[in-house]
Design a binder for these strands. Structure first.
Lengths: 148, 148
DNA sequence: GCTGGAAATTTCAAGCTTGAAATAAAATCG
DNA sequence: CGATTTTATTTCAAGCTTGAAATTTCCAGC
């Protein structure tokens, strides 16, 4: 039988997508204008910053929810610009660790502070209660289980 | 002065992005496997279906929150596959209307029913109250005003 | 120690996406 | 009217992204 909430879930998903895209577009423009960088580069650098002691390419693509090939391409470009570097694992010759360079670290930290400010402004209308509620709903949404 | 909620807003935004990407990845795979199509094509067709009496290229890209060049490229491919067609405006020779063809309409309606079912399953854990709350929070988030 | 399968990464083609520049047509206004 | 500006679309280069295939290395079981 058809779920009576089906249409509402679809509509809400479309709204969610709209808000997310809109915020992404805003942040993309912000990073481009103020830091001459792109969202994918920023995302990769953020992941590398969060795991400063080293990440493998696979972990990186899992963290960012993108394909392996994608991670390879973005890291290639960051490496070419001297912002990231690869290191072969000593114990497993298939594995490659990626990390920010000194410069990458410095550059990212400058971007990150600004980026946080922009996100804060973008979602300035959300109160603490909103954030709590949203977090809880997102947690439940991520369960992707059956209809209640 | 620094906003005490700033870090929480950032964290919530990252979660929101994670849930959205995860759902998009799932739906992309679903459309690929079951309907041999892609998310961007589906999105464009959905917009054309919603506005069956015709949309201009500009309206289309605004609806989807993508660049003009992007809309052009996707519509080009849909047109090549006989799923969409362009028509010159009679009154303004700059303007182009896009619409689904008969086949496009038929194909989309098949995909859409399935897609809705998949979204419903994906967010099956969200109750009606959750959907109400989420919609309200998203509405507020979209206001992008100052901190309260 | 072999051998077959699993895992980590890269490569590649095709499609997606942006932002800027180019084209063309319409609107504004002196 | 004619010049300027605005609007609609396309084109293009560069970067992003996927999914599949290729490579290399490790691991499990014989």
């Amino acid at each position: 039988m058809t779920d009576p909430l089906s249409k509402r879930r679809l509509k809400t998903w479309i709204r969610l997508l709209g808000v997310t895209r809109s915020a992404e577009n805003h942040l993309r423009e912000f990073l481009r204008v103020n830091h001459d960088t792109t969202l994918p580069r920023f995302d990769v650098m953020a992941a590398l910053w969060r795991r400063r002691d080293g990440v493998t390419m696979s972990e990186l693509s899992r963290m960012l929810l993108v394909s392996n090939g994608n991670a390879t391409a973005v890291v290639d470009r960051l490496e070419k610009d001297g912002l990231a570097k690869r290191t072969q694992s000593a114990t497993d010759r298939r594995t490659v660790y990626v990390a920010l360079t000194e410069e990458g670290l410095r550059v990212f930290e400058g971007q990150a502070a600004d980026h946080e400010g922009e996100v804060n402004a973008l979602f300035g209308k959300l109160s603490e209660a909103d954030l709590d509620a949203l977090t809880e709903i997102l947690r439940r949404a991520a369960e992707k289980g059956e209809t209640t």
